[in-house]
């Protein structure tokens, strides 16, 4: 079976002024559909850069990235945007909800951008599973951190993405809420066979994944 994520010799170098800063120095990674992968490593090791490249938010400097059969080398910026719209869901450490919209609209806007219309059945199933069905009319400022992150998860998965990319999803949460969010992610992985790639500093959080990848200095050091 073809892997959903296939990365070969991935290099990403940022240019700050006249200085080249290598963020990824040759990463090889294969993830099968339905896997729950945790990526751990110290700050600056390239975890977030890897996540941004896999999500099509930025392009690689060198190497091959193939997601669900889409080779990033052959894709324009607009192609990557379209790809992200249909195949990727993001969950961020800082929740990143639109502050002026209600929880319901924060979730629904993902469906609107995708353009496949509102799917009430999936909407109800997701919001109930995440325990936010009673909070849908609240705006982000009226929700706790845990609730905001669950809304963000609902937004990320409402369009049935092939891959859920979570960047430190528990980084801004207390222990109790962190556990709730991690349970939700595990539930999503089990119930919907959702492929999840999660970046974390937290070894306990990483522990819920099926597979843990460790990174250092822009390379994978253990898998």
């Amino acid at each position: 079976m073809e892997p959903i994520i296939s990365v070969k010799s991935l290099v990403k170098t940022y240019r700050l002024g006249k200085v080249d800063v290598p963020a990824l120095r040759g990463v090889d990674l294969v993830v099968q559909e339905g896997e729950f992968v945790a990526v751990v490593g110290p700050s600056g090791c390239g975890k977030s850069t890897l996540l941004h490249i896999l999500g099509g938010l930025t392009g690689p400097s060198e190497g091959q990235v193939c997601i669900d059969g889409n080779d990033f080398r052959l894709m324009t910026d607009a192609d990557r945007t379209r790809f992200r719209r249909h195949k990727i869901g993001f969950v961020f450490q800082r929740f990143n909800l639109l502050p002026t919209l209600s929880a319901r609209d924060n979730i629904a806007i993902a469906q609107h951008i995708q353009g496949n219309g509102f799917n009430p059945h999936r909407f109800e199933a997701i919001t109930r599973m995440l325990g936010i069905d009673k909070k849908l009319n609240h705006r982000p400022f009226a929700l706790s951190g845990g609730e905001q992150q669950r809304v963000a998860i609902a937004r990320a998965v409402i369009c049935e993405p092939k891959i859920l990319l979570a960047d430190e999803p528990t980084g801004n949460l207390d222990t109790e809420n962190s556990q709730v969010v991690l349970d939700m992610l595990r539930e999503l992985n089990r119930t919907f066979r959702q492929t999840i790639l999660m970046i974390t500093h937290n070894p306990e959080a990483a522990g819920i994944a099926n597979r843990i990848i460790r990174m250092r200095d822009g390379r994978i050091i253990s898998d």
Binding site: T81, R84, N96, L97, L98, P99
Partner: peptide
């Protein structure tokens, strides 16, 4: 917020 919309796949 524009970054959020872009992460959701909003086109230019």
């Amino acid at each position: 917020e524009i970054g959020i919309l872009k992460s959701l796949g909003a086109s230019k």
